[in-house]
Structure formats: structure tokens, C-alpha cells
């Protein structure tokens, strides 16, 4: 399955300023694995040592939250994934 991960500009420093990344995978976890293969610095940022998504991040598939159990959520061909981090500044 081929999907696209859309990142906000804040992630650009880890992806050579690319914000729309083509990935392969049939679950969110597989898509992220392919994202990390392309941009290894993101893995430490997004995952815990146990390989779980850091609390400060949420994944959306086609605009819908993948929470909970994000990593096992199925991804279809052409899906768009967004990685959203918690912000609280005012």
C-alpha cells in the first residue's frame, strides 16, 4: 500500500524540508517504519524506546484520529496520514 504522510513545517528540519512523504505500508506502524527508513532522525523524536508513539503525538488518517492503538490501524492505498504534536503555548 502506498500512502502519504503530511508533516507540518516544524518537522522540516528532520526531512530536508520535505513535508509530503510517500511511504509504503498497510498499517500506521509500517508506514512510520518506512518514514524512519527515509528520515532516521524522526524515529527518536516520535517513538519511545519500546517502539510506541510518544504521548505528545497523535496520528490522523484522512483527517480522523487513529487513537488509540495507532500503530496497528490499517492504512489503505492513497490514504493521507498527518502527525500532530501537542502544543500548549499561548
Amino acid at each position: 500500500m502506498s500512502a502519504e504522510i503530511e508533516l507540518s513545517s516544524v518537522f522540516g528540519r528532520y526531512t530536508d524540508k520535505q513535508l509530503n512523504i510517500k511511504v509504503e505500508g498497510s498499517t500506521v506502524g509500517e508506514c512510520l517504519k518506512d518514514l524512519f527508513r527515509q528520515f532516521p532522525k524522526l524515529e527518536k523524536l516520535l517513538l519511545t524506546r519500546e517502539g510506541k508513539l510518544q504521548h505528545a503525538y497523535d496520528i490522523y488518517i484522512n483527517g480522523e484520529s487513529a487513537y488509540p492503538e495507532e500503530m496497528t490501524k490499517p492504512v489503505k492505498d492513497g490514504d493521507k496520514l498527518n502527525i500532530v504534536f501537542i502544543i500548549y503555548g499561548g
Binding site: 507540518s8 513545517s9 483527517g63 480522523e64 484520529s65
Partner: peptide, 18 residues
Amino acid sequence: RLLNYDALSMKFTEFKVN
């Protein structure tokens, strides 16, 4: 709906929040 504003790419994106 969570409205996300990314000024650097000047994009507004919406996420559904149930």
C-alpha cells in the same frame, strides 16, 4: 474540528475530533 494553521507553508488543515 481541530483547525491547524501552519504559517510557514500557509496552510490550514482540519482534523475531525470525536
